[in-house]
């Protein structure tokens, strides 16, 4: 994922002349080093100081630049208050990209895993929150973020390398990847690949909807999926509190109340392990998702 991001940033450098890339001593692992080499005058590595980086980005935006600030997702959270008080409060045109998000920093352990970042970003007014799913979508979402005005938080994983989307990314648009009538599985990020695998060969007819934009949420797509199936399962590489599952629950509780099952990391921290092991442990691999969707379909509200 991060490689695709690095390629997108490098390519955008050509056309978006006002774009400035900032990072906090993670140019290499976040893949923006190549941009820095090609455009040294539009690149700033501030060292290990995320708070400084985020407000420098705010200053650049106040001077009509388009800053893209890139750090590991867990440490971007360190600058949350700067994002709140300066960027989101004044609707500044700053793009924040958190890499190594979710469980993808796997072996590094819980300090390096970010299971709270979507919740923190989503609560902020003016903020657009994007969790792209595959290589192509990372590229398209990067471009869309840079080209649309206002603050954006985008989180991407480390090494997952999946490809499941044909439809081009548009901010605020969900994509139905598989139609079905018994249960709707709503997910984002690379974990959508697991949801798709779970739907194949399941005992129930599952709809799979990929929702790369958590905010603004594609309300129409979510409500119509709930209406059609009467049962919803949300899957994400995030805490079950505050992320996509919460956004879907908040919407459906008022617009079309059906039971929503939220799959994610259940109010706990991660630990070291391989990515696959962690998905397995937290019940986010295809077999787990399949079991939950079958359960949900059987106990659905109509």
């Amino acid at each position: 994922m991060r490689v695709a991001f690095g390629e997108a940033i490098l390519r955008l450098g050509e056309e978006a002349e006002d774009m400035v890339v900032l990072t906090a001593d993670v140019a290499k692992p976040t893949q923006v080093a190549a941009f820095g080499e090609r455009y040294p005058h539009r690149f700033l590595n501030v060292g290990i100081s995320e708070q400084d980086m985020v407000d420098i980005a705010a200053g650049l935006a106040l001077s009509e630049k388009i800053p893209v600030a890139v750090a590991f997702a867990p440490f971007m959270m360190r600058a949350w208050e700067q994002v709140r008080s300066t960027i989101s409060r004044c609707n500044l045109n700053v793009k924040l990209v958190g890499t190594h998000s979710g469980l993808s920093a796997s072996d590094e352990g819980s300090s390096h895993q970010s299971l709270e970042d979507v919740a923190l970003a989503r609560v902020l007014p003016n903020m657009t929150v994007i969790v792209p799913g595959d290589r192509e979508e990372v590229k398209e979402a990067t471009e869309a973020a840079v080209k649309s005005p206002g603050p954006v938080y985008m989180r991407i994983g480390r090494d997952e390398d999946v490809k499941f989307l044909d439809e081009p990314f548009r901010i605020g648009r969900a994509v139905v990847l598989r139609d079905g009538s018994d249960v709707a599985v709503i997910s984002n990020g690379a974990i959508t690949a697991e949801a798709l695998a779970a739907a194949e060969g399941a005992r129930v007819d599952a709809m799979v909807i990929h929702v790369p934009t958590v905010k603004p949420l594609d309300a129409q797509a979510v409500v119509s999926a709930a209406r059609k199936t009467g049962a919803v399962v949300c899957v994400e590489e995030h805490s079950t509190i505050g992320g996509l599952g919460s956004a879907v629950s908040e919407l459906l509780s008022s617009e079309y109340p059906v039971r929503v099952r939220r799959m994610g990391v259940n109010d706990t921290f991660g630990e070291s392990g391989t990515y696959r092991e962690l998905l397995e442990k937290h019940g986010l691999s295809a077999p787990h998702i399949r079991r939950r969707m079958e359960e949900a379909a059987e106990k659905r509200d109509r």
Partner: peptide, 30 residues
């Protein structure tokens, strides 16, 4: 905040102005 004509940067939460200033000074240099 920015709703006041003439205000160049928001503030209120302390410690952020110098970083914002760096961003503006960099933009001027660029």
């Amino acid at each position: 905040d920015l709703r006041t004509p003439g205000v160049d940067a928001p503030s209120g939460s302390l410690g952020q102005g110098l970083s914002i200033g760096i961003g503006m000074a960099l933009a001027a240099r660029m």
